[in-house]
């Protein structure tokens, strides 16, 4: 474990807790894409198949349970909670799941480290996580208004993967044969997808104006 990865995990943890807290306290999911949340639940499910087979550390297991629990709770709130679901904007959140899931699945079947079920699922989860934010970014572009918590959520989510890139660079130089180009490429693509959001987020923060994304 290194400081970059710990900071990345904590940032990721805070991002999902910020979202869960927002939905739980104000009983609203306005501006949140259910599609993205469902994709994240799928990312964690396919990423953590080894949850009960390989024990790495207490930290690893606890964090996996938190990410799984929080992502499914968020999906449950938006789908089932009698008050929250009313604020879900299904007419705007129209990104088709299979436009994202199918290409990632095909890519995982073509490009992976080992052709085993767990390894292909794990690779699929990496590709899926890289693009899972797209429905949320599309929704933000459409609804234009970004409330603070949603802005913070997307910012923290992007920051976590940027910190992971520093972690991979650090591990590449400190651990022999630590080579995982699939992880690195997926992580870089993921962070680049947030790049324009980051730009507008900093602009709004610097000029102290409300965050607006160009149409």
């Amino acid at each position: 474990m290194n400081i970059f990865r710990l900071a990345g995990d904590m940032t990721h943890l805070v991002s999902v807790l910020v979202l869960l807290l927002k939905i739980h306290t104000i009983k609203s999911c306005a501006g949140i894409s259910l599609k993205t949340q469902e994709l994240y639940a799928l990312v964690f499910t396919t990423r953590y198949l080894d949850l009960f087979t390989d024990y790495i550390s207490l930290y690893n297991t606890v964090m996996k349970l938190i990410f799984l629990g929080s992502s499914f709770s968020i999906v449950w709130y938006i789908r089932r909670h009698k008050i929250v679901r009313r604020s879900y904007d299904k007419d705007q959140d129209t990104f088709r799941h299979y436009f994202i899931v199918l290409p990632c699945l095909v890519l995982a079947l073509l490009i992976h480290h080992k052709f085993t079920f767990k390894e292909v699922m794990w690779t699929f989860s990496l590709y899926l996580e890289a693009v899972a934010i797209l429905p949320q970014l599309v929704l933000l572009q459409r609804t234009r208004n970004i409330d603070n918590l949603t802005g913070q959520y997307v910012f923290l989510l992007g920051a976590y993967r940027a910190l992971y890139i520093l972690n991979w660079i650090y591990r590449h130089y400190t651990e022999p044969h630590y080579v995982h180009w699939i992880t690195w490429i997926a992580g870089i693509v993921q962070t680049l997808l947030y790049a324009d959001f980051f730009y507008y987020y900093f602009q709004s923060w610097k000029n102290n104006v409300k965050l607006q994304l160009p149409a």
Binding site: H12, I56, S57, N60, H113, Y164, N167, Y178, T183
Partner: peptide, 10 residues
């Protein structure tokens, strides 16, 4: 064997 370590990441 070089795979195993990447699985220690979340």
């Amino acid at each position: 064997q070089f795979h195993e370590d990447v699985k220690d990441e979340l």
